[in-house]
Design a protein around this nucleic acid. Structure first.
Lengths: 235, 235
DNA sequence: GCAATGCTTCGGCCCGCACCGAAATATTGC
DNA sequence: GCAATATTTCGGTGCGGGCCGAAGCATTGC
């Protein structure tokens, strides 16, 4: 078996993601922040020594990058490419075999409401934001890309988004990212990252300690409503 | 372990791709054609009964679609989303840990020269085509999207590409796809598919029986040279 | 220095699953 | 119907790898 080089390494990547503990770690790191080995151990629900082995494999394979800081070791996704791969795997995972049983939990509900996806907003909030921006004619999204309109540039700049900075990065400016929970696109790319940053800076959403889920503040509820007429009931 | 829903299924997808035989099958199906169970067994290098089990799992998970035809069962990727996932996994696989030993084989060389990637052209040919089209100012590629220029539309239409048909499909018109062998982008999306179709129709490239590799005809060598000044030495 | 914390290495257990041989079940062509 | 081809089901084997306990570094703070 293993007749071609390419599929060998494809299988290796698959095997790395194919373990529950490792998948949980990668998923946690899609929050965009660097996490320590102990935090990842807790998230994955395995002991520190097991985690150590997993992280060594993931780092060795080039999926994670390591930054030592004192007695802590901070792990993060090695590149946006890895984040993109995780996005696409989760997109496929969420569309597969709909008839199967899907228990939903509290933690899951919170993730569905609002969360970070690598470096941008996802969940109902992320999708609602994308819908509002396209609905108002500020942004146009196609299946694989997107642009801001003239009016959109004005609007976004007025809201404190630095479009020039976003545009000059080497990464994509604006692209859709399939939301695994909503099964509809939200906004990724440097514009997506800027939108998330702005919402965090305005304290409209807050990061949580142990999860990729985001808390939408009272402040934020009003802000999204006033600015873009986004209603985020309780849901 | 397995504390969140999302990573559970992420792990399931990973585990499916994490087996060498299954990865080889999926990789073979990235050629864009439907293949029978026996053909996939041969490609994966395992017996028919083992293959049967693998295909059942992949189909059950929604990664493959099945079409019965007489006593044959034709399998193909269930959706473009799956193809995109495979692309991104191979892109990550090809950029990981460069220092490691990479034996190169004949079959591998052929794949590197020219092959199909789901439904468009890849390998040195695919990248050279993308380079030529952008170099002549016919196409503009950003990191996550692309467009044709006015001059490009004229050129492509003149070459027999039906741009209107390509544009009206629901899928993306033009986007870069990271080539795992060249580590540089080639052209995907409906434009990419049309380019591949055109090259096949003109008999500039031919499909092979047992591989995703493509043969560039004598005819094609001249055509690529004359039309776009693409040199495809022996390499 | 010493204790505490963070992380890794070692050793051994054990489960899951990929694999194949053999046999059963389609489907086609004659 | 019969033989040939295509595919699946069943049963049993064997190995890879995930897991944890215990012990071993490394770093910080006192």
């Amino acid at each position: 078996m293993n007749r071609t080089i390419s599929s060998n390494t494809l299988a290796e990547i698959g095997a790395l993601m194919g373990d529950g503990a490792r998948a949980n770690m990668m998923s946690a790191l899609m929050g965009g922040q660097a996490l320590t080995a102990s935090e990842l151990a807790y998230r994955a629900g395995v002991t520190a020594q097991t985690t150590s082995g997993h992280l060594a494999k993931l780092t060795e394979a080039g999926l994670l990058a390591l930054a030592r800081q004192g007695r802590h070791r901070y792990y993060r996704l090695a590149s946006p490419l890895v984040g993109r791969m995780l996005e696409s795997m989760m997109a496929v995972a969420s569309t597969q075999s709909p008839p199967r049983y899907r228990p939903s939990s509290r933690i899951d509900d919170d993730l569905r409401q609002a969360r970070t996806c690598y470096d941008h907003l996802a969940g109902r909030l992320g999708v609602a934001l994308a819908d509002a921006l396209t609905g108002h004619g500020y942004v146009r999204l196609s299946e694989d890309g997107g642009t801001t309109t003239r009016r959109g540039e004005k609007f976004l700049t007025g809201w404190g988004i630095d479009l020039a900075a976003a545009a000059e990065q080497r990464r994509s400016f604006c692209r859709p990212c399939l939301d695994w929970s909503e099964r509809r696109p939200h906004i990724a790319g440097s514009l997506g990252a800027q939108l998330a940053d702005r919402c965090l800076a305005l304290d409209w959403v807050q990061r949580r300690k142990d999860s990729r889920a985001l808390t939408i503040t009272r402040h934020g509820l009003r802000g999204f409503k006033d600015l873009l007429d986004i209603g985020l009931g309780s849901a």
